[in-house]
Amino acid sequence: MAKLSLSLEEGFDNDHVVVTVGRRSVLDERGVSTRYQISLACLKEIELAEGEDELFIALPERGLEARVPLGPSPPNHVRASVSRDGRSIATSTEDPVGYA
């Protein structure tokens, strides 16, 4: 079973964050805020099941959504940040080097 590490990084501010993989909810948390001393709000390890081909991140109270296709070879990491203007969620599948 593949594992995926989700990093919610910058721009989260007391947000309600919902993350689903396929139709399965893997994170439903309120009050998610970026800790600016490490530029990180939340780290979440997700175990992927067969056929789960999309990661969906939503901040329903802000009306923001992002979809990350996982495909047959899912990435090890997904990093997500709310843009500075607060109008979108930027995602990346690059491995984070680390936080400090």
Partner: peptide, 13 residues
Amino acid sequence: VSGTNLGGIMFDS
């Protein structure tokens, strides 16, 4: 506790 991804933190907030 976050693991090897965290190299350090000013923890006192």
